[in-house]
């Protein structure tokens, strides 16, 4: 944010706007997102499905489907360089090497016709220009690091279970010791018991290599485990951002509070859960005013004229609601 911090910053996204084309309509997927990430930090992006989180992640690596994109505006600075202006060659150097990504569905992310070690070794060899033997050795090393015995290096993805596949994906992503790891809902597709394992693994590997992480999730429990900072996303906009403590202890935006309220609580004795009323707004329509007002229990007609600017509630803690509910705690 300030000039001194710029040197510490690894990643800075400024006013990212992404629109898809869908038939005749335009989908406003990402509307003016800005965020920063420092070295070694973990930022959690929380939001419902369809909020635009994956789009942000894919924009950073520029692996969005070209044929479907209508507009991609804004700036994404990595170590001072704007990713959106890089050439193809420079991008290829970046991907898998400086910035890696872990995908949501391990069942489809791996190439079924290649062995797991060759898929790991491939990226390594590409970025280090080393002989095959060395790359293969590195692949086995990475597999062991994620808990897969080296003997299984020459097996194919279909011979592994879901959890193990995700471990392979992690091994692939971390092979070149990237500075930034983007994890897009890495545990969503797994069973709960495996989730914990994979999460631990990510944490450990991250610490060992010193990677910063952008973790995308809809699970607040995961956020609590792993993240330093949190951004809450709704309808393509960040509605609240701050440190983990800020968000968990003093949630201010009605959406954030709604999310926490919807969590099942063992201590409470209730018959029904309390979801947030209503549905996500139609992404093809762009309205003025606050996007959440149709579902907000506190909405009034002033919200219709809301300018959608972020307000600082405390140092580092921002909210996009004019009421600033921080003081009206219950």
């Amino acid at each position: 944010m300030s000039e001194e911090n710029k040197k510490k910053e690894l990643l800075e996204v400024k006013n990212l706007n992404v629109r898809y084309k869908s038939g005749q309509a335009t989908v406003y997927a990402v509307n003016g997102i800005s965020l920063e990430l420092e070295k070694g930090q973990t930022l959690g992006l929380v939001g419902e499905t369809g909020a635009g989180k994956t789009t942000i992640a894919k924009s950073i690596l520029r692996i969005l489907p070209d044929y479907a994109i209508e507009t991609l505006e804004g700036e994404i600075y990595y170590e001072g360089k704007d990713i959106l202006k890089l050439s193809d060659k420079e991008l290829q150097n970046l991907r898998g090497h400086e910035i890696s990504m872990i995908f949501q569905d391990p069942m489809t992310a791996l190439n079924p016709v290649k062995t797991v070690s060759s898929q790991i070794a491939e990226g390594y060899r590409k970025h280090h220009g080393c002989p095959r033997a060395e790359a293969n050795r590195k692949a086995v090393e990475m597999l062991e690091m994620v808990g897969i015995p080296g003997e299984r290096a020459d097996e194919y993805p279909h011979q592994f279970s879901g959890g193990m596949k995700q471990r392979v994906v992690i091994a692939m992503a971390m092979a070149c010791s990237p500075k930034l790891l983007i994890a897009d809902e890495p545990t969503t597709a797994l069973d709960v018991t495996i989730q914990a394992q994979v999460l631990d693994l990510i944490k450990n590997v991250k610490e060992e290599i010193g990677t910063a992480m952008l973790l995308i999730t809809h699970d607040l429990g995961v956020v609590a485990e792993v993240c330093d900072k949190v951004c809450v996303i709704y309808a393509g906009r960040i509605v609240e951002s701050g440190s983990k403590e800020d968000i968990f202890d003093k949630p201010s935006h009605p959406y954030t509070r709604g999310l926490f309220a919807a969590l099942p609580d063992l201590d409470k004795d209730v018959e029904r859960l309390t979801p947030i009323e209503g549905l996500l707004p139609d992404p093809t329509v762009r309205e003025d005013g606050c996007a959440f007002r149709s579902r907000c229990p506190h909405a009034c007609h002033a919200c219709r004229e809301f300018d959608n600017e972020l307000r600082e509630l405390a140092p580092g803690h921002y909210t996009r609601c004019w009421r600033g509910l921080q003081d009206r705690e219950d």
């Binding site: 894919k58 692996i63 090497h97 489809t108 990226g123 590409k126």
Partner: peptide, 22 residues
């Protein structure tokens, strides 16, 4: 349009390697 191609791209492979190799 499948995920495995996205993964391959995200590893930093050239377009040619992605199309013909994956």
């Amino acid at each position: 349009r499948s995920d495995l191609v996205t993964t391959a791209r995200s590893k930093g492979l050239s377009e040619r390697e992605v199309i013909y190799g994956h």
